[in-house]
Design a protein around this nucleic acid. Structure first.
Lengths: 219, 219
DNA sequence: AAGGCTAGTGACAGTCGCTGACAGTTGACA
DNA sequence: TGTCAACTGTCAGCGACTGTCACTAGCCTT
């Protein structure tokens, strides 16, 4: 009843079992992204991935619902960061302004969070791979749609609105999200491969949103 | 050397071969949508579809790149109608206004075009199925992204701009498209299952776009 | 310290979507 | 009428994914 094993199992701290799982998961993510970015997504089989980590194929599918899912482990974190940032915006801020600042803030602090997972450069390559692989792009867009719903709820809550009643949160988020997707696409197609360039592009496109909708474009 | 078969093959008119192909294709579309909407998409196998039309599985895949593609045969036509409508807008119209009117016009005239393919009601059911089936939703979004590019080029041309230079066409179309997706989603989730209700919803959301981005929302 | 519990895993077999290769059939056209 | 090319069916096989079951190894109690 004194020492209960090598790991004291402080409450709230993951046990050996949990850590082992996490390690397997991380290893699968890293191996997969490595293989995907070097050989291409479709030319890489699940068998190759599991061989690199030395687990069974069955195990792979216990961690990830599909071959594509493994790519989005990092993306998930980036999105979480944005949501968190949005929640932190002061409530007096106008809704669209809050969205805009939240992304930009998120980009400022995202670098290190990625790094502790995979090298930033690998994340960038993965991002481009998504943009250029139909199967992955499709999943990406679906995920985006799901995140949108959460953002709508946050925006509605900020304004004290019921999202079922008032369509404005939906509309604002839909437009915002459209521009964000555009930013991702353009960044992926461009030369510069830094977080900084992504931030700059995002800022520039969001700024132009209102003028692009208003009246005509001649000065 | 005189009569060359029952069908004289008037130039410009499809020959027997072509008509046969078209019939097979249509039959596959109809059978697939029928099965999908009754049994569900994932619970329907390609084997079942080809059995219903009495062709080989290989033939199915010669017509459609994948099981999902068969669902979008009709959607394609709807999009084409919108693009055509946009091309017909008077050039003085401000860009976003042109987009807005183009969709609404398209909805006005779309009913009969669908009907000659499948019953409108079946189209509606198919649309809902897309919204609720991840695999299909993903394809849908990807297709949308491709159409967007064409729309951007049209808008840029209207304004005499080079889309590589000026981001405004991209931004406007991105926001527009975001709202359109939203309209589709909400319509699919709602009760009313008519083209008219879709048109109404589209109009209402597009109207609210600018106010939803501007300042704060209190009056 | 020992033994039971069970989450996590591997091995294996099977389904389904999809593709390549090859051979047979049938409109198109000279 | 015969040749050609387009379509099609058959078959064999790959890769993604799932269900099942037995086994290993953290974990938890006593």
């Amino acid at each position: 009843m004194t020492a209960r094993g090598v790991t004291p199992g402080l409450p709230g701290l993951p046990g050996l079992r949990e850590r082992k799982k996490q390690r397997t998961r991380d290893a699968l993510v890293r191996a997969a992204i490595e293989l995907f970015t070097t050989q291409g997504y479709e030319r890489t089989t699940v068998d190759e991935i599991v061989a690199a980590v030395d687990v069974s194929q069955r195990t792979f599918f216990r961690y990830f619902a599909g071959k594509e899912q493994v790519v989005f482990a990092v993306q998930e974190m980036v999105e979480a960061r944005f949501v968190e940032s949005l929640r932190g915006r002061p409530p007096e801020e106008p809704p669209f302004e809050a969205l805009r600042r939240a992304v930009l803030d998120a980009w400022d602090s995202i670098g290190e969070s990625i790094e502790q997972f995979v090298p930033v450069e690998m994340y960038m390559r993965a991002f481009r791979m998504i943009e250029s692989t139909p199967a992955l792009l499709a999943v990406q867009m679906r995920r985006t749609a799901e995140t949108e719903e959460e953002i709508v709820r946050i925006v509605a809550a900020r304004e004290g609105l019921d999202p079922e009643e008032d369509p404005r949160p939906w509309v604002a988020v839909a437009a915002f999200s459209g521009v964000m997707q555009l930013a991702g696409r353009r960044w992926g197609a461009g030369e510069e491969i830094s977080v900084e360039s992504m931030r700059r592009l995002t800022a520039s496109l969001l700024e132009r949103l209102e003028p692009s909708l208003a009246g005509d474009w001649r000065r």
